[in-house]
Amino acid sequence: MTATDIDRPAATSHRAARQRERAIRKGEPGAFSESKRRLSSPGATIAAIIIAAIWTVPTLGLFVTSFRQPADINTTGWWTVFTNPNLTVSNYVNTLNFTDTLTVGQSFVNSLVIVIPATLFPIAIALLAAYAFAWVNFRGKNVLFIAVFSLQVVPIQVALVPLLSLFSNGVTIGNWAVFPGLNLNSVDGSFARIWIAHTIFALPLAIFLLHNFIAALPVDIMEAARIDGASHGQTFFRIVLPLARPAIASFAILQFLWVWNDLLVATIFTSGSNFPITKLLTDLAGTYGQTWYLLSAGTFLAILVPLVVFFALQRYFVRGLLAGATKG
């Protein structure tokens, strides 16, 4: 069996996933006019609208609250706003400048500083490995691939403490200090540890998703390139990278949302002045549990970025979820 034979099943089912996803997009009126008549009933639609309403009300409540006067928030319910509107945006201004260990505005910037490198790094490293897994023949390939895939399910909780001690104390074998550690504990403002941690934790899924896509590229194209004398380096750069752009976009969005929304890794690997917004919000919720003008505005500042990404790039996001999950 050649490598391409082995990769075939992955290829077909990935294509199936993409077809299904295309079908979702066609779910707009008209595309299924015949079946629509058959399958949708008013009762079903009403039930769906009720579920949708239940799903939206909690968010709406906090959203409305974030625009109310602080004095009103703690005395009357947010639903009274519909009869007695008295709105303001000052909560957002006050929250951005609110200082705990650092201002909410600064933690927002920190989130950006963490998320951009932590999205780019794993993609680059995973692309290299994914290409080799898909199109370079070598012994032990399947075993290594399954090992990498298995690491995806290892709870990061298991890795956190030793990784932190690796960063701060290094490794010693017997009395020999083999690696002294990054020595960054006292360096306030360094993001190195959280960049590295996020990069490592993202690799298994990144390699897996990108491999599935790259392995599904048509054999003919790869063969043609090889016959024309293209090396692996050229094939990677000229053919695989441009064609894999949709898969890269899908994973980039997943990873972006994951890192932006992460709390656990940030709790362990950031300190003081480089808390991201999720960590600061959690602390605020603990300390100022009833200060709702602050928590509501802070929450919507924190979820603003993911929501923008979500609405702008929903198509790629769905594709990433489908490729990631339907594969196991």
Binding site: G61, N261, W292, T299
Partner: peptide, 15 residues
Amino acid sequence: VAISFVGASIIFKFF
């Protein structure tokens, strides 16, 4: 799905 668990928690804490 796009909202962080922290965001979701605060939304529901208010609820």
